[in-house]
Design a protein around this nucleic acid. Structure first.
Length: 230
DNA sequence: ATCCCGAGGG
DNA sequence: CCCTCTGGAT
């Protein structure tokens, strides 16, 4: 059984290695202000950031502020965001979000977790993305990648995002939380895939209790890095 | 068939 | 706690 001290050391070593491997790790959603990031993050639910970035330019141009979302025609908005999936629930959330921002926050996106999670369509994960990337407030993004890698790294065995957030957060200083999220998510997207993780090409294989879950042959692994899934 | 930077409702 | 909402890539 790994001691707490050893777990903390191993977790931080993994993060250091990931940081060195992915020096450009950051939020991959395109945005120019907090509202744009908030909208893009809501659209990213069960979608890829690449797909979100494809639709957001038209969305941001048509709805430049909170009041514009509040006054949006449902059908128009649904058509603009359609490729991201869940278009009915998302358009509904964005319209109600605009109204809530105008009514309760003077049309501005609040910079506190407590306020953000009261907004329609905004859960803890979305709130932490906005805090970390638009307000420089440390936050752990427990998205699908972070959940999967936390389990594989042995950082948390919980299936509940808020528990994982607390347990993994306790392994790192607050100031590391946002960049940790980016490092882990980048590694999840590029190497530690949900299906057939490229263990043979993984920079933290030595530190990972799940090493061997995917192919360990370096040649096979390197192929997986280019053709991520199959 | 499985997965993608989830949230809300029952 | 479960379920549902949705499209597109692989």
């Amino acid at each position: 059984m790994e001691t707490r001290t050893a777990l903390v050391r191993r977790a931080r070593a993994i993060n250091r290695t990931l940081a060195a491997t992915y020096p450009d790790a950051r939020c991959e959603l395109d945005f120019c202000n907090p509202l744009e990031l908030l909208v893009a993050t809501i659209l990213s639910a069960q979608s890829t950031d690449k797909r979100v970035n494809l639709v957001t330019p038209a969305v941001f141009a048509r709805y430049p502020n909170a009041a514009a979302y509040a006054a949006a025609e449902r059908e128009t908005l649904e058509q603009l965001i359609h490729p991201t999936g869940f278009f009915r629930a998302k358009s509904d959330a964005l319209i109600k979000l605009g109204a809530a921002l105008v009514e309760r926050f003077g049309g501005e996106v609040p910079g506190r977790l407590k306020d953000l999670v009261t907004l329609p369509g905004v859960g803890r994960k979305t709130a932490n993305v906005v805090l970390g990337n638009a307000f420089d407030v440390p936050g752990i993004t427990t998205d699908t990648h972070f959940m999967r890698l936390s389990a594989r790294f042995g950082w948390s065995d919980s299936a509940k995002p808020d528990v994982v957030e607390a347990e993994v957060g306790s392994l790192f200083p607050r100031s590391d939380w946002t960049q940790l999220s980016h490092n882990v998510i980048w590694h999840g997207r590029r190497c530690c895939h949900a299906r057939r993780p490229a263990c043979g090409a993984c920079p933290v294989a030595r530190l990972c209790p799940s090493y061997g879950e995917g192919p360990t042959d370096p040649k096979v692994a390197v192929k997986l890095l280019r053709e991520p899934r199959g």
